[in-house]
Amino acid sequence: MPLFQRKNQTTLVVVRGAPSVEERQNVSVGEIADSPSIPSGMWEKCANCGSIVYNEDLLRTNKVCPGCGYHFRLSALKRLELTADEGTLNIFNAELRGGDPLGFPGYAEKVEKMRAATGLDEAIVTAEAQIGGYDCVLAAMDSNFMMASMGYAVGEKFVQAAEKALSKRVPLVVFTASGGARMQEGMVSLMQMAKASGAVSELNAAGVPYIVVLTDPTTGGVTASFAMLGDITLAEPGALVGFAGRRVIEQTTKTSLPPGFQSAEFLLEKGFIDAIVPRNELREALIRLLAFHKGVRP
């Protein structure tokens, strides 16, 4: 298969009962939250330039605003579909779930509701795949699922993905997005940070490449663990990436924050990421990077 060339159809090995990618586009956050919202499905409003963008156009641009280039958030399945070679995606651990260690009121119901709304069992999807013909393990987090917060299942699926990359000696490529640790699972969530960072240390020891793509938003306990530990760290333009939330910092320091604070561009300037790559150039960038790790010039 020639590099740098995509076919239009991608075969997804999808979790049982999951809606198709097209159906998923119609699930707006407003619907998930059960709040009154303008009937969606036809269009979305760009959070950056405010223009009304037809979903038909967003599908064509992979959810990049045709007017201003703003990157809308993308579902995990769509992300995997955009990144992997056609027909190579093999999702594993789709049904791995966490528990309810605090017996937190309403948590189990909330998770069930999220499952129904997203068609996913948890906030990260992990898969074996090829990107430009290179074998790798690929993972994407989904902010539609409880803001992709990390509890047991997210931590465990990340670690099992890293372990698979380790045993097969293939690169691990992870698209992060997260509101941080999942509060409802208490300390079990915090411990996932240690577990996930430990898994990265094993990749380091074995010389297995780990590439991170930071997407909007990546914060809290995910930033303070596996999101910031890549050998190579890319980010989508405008992605919010930080440790503490804006409001918390403003309350702590009694100052208001400058515009652009904690953006991908801010992180690049401060020296914490390698490059900002627009969504529709990411696959090509990953293929170029994977070639360097293979060590054979394509």
Partner: peptide, 8 residues
């Protein structure tokens, strides 16, 4: 951990 501008 401290939540400040410099920390970020």
């Amino acid at each position: 951990a401290y939540c400040g501008v410099g920390a970020e």
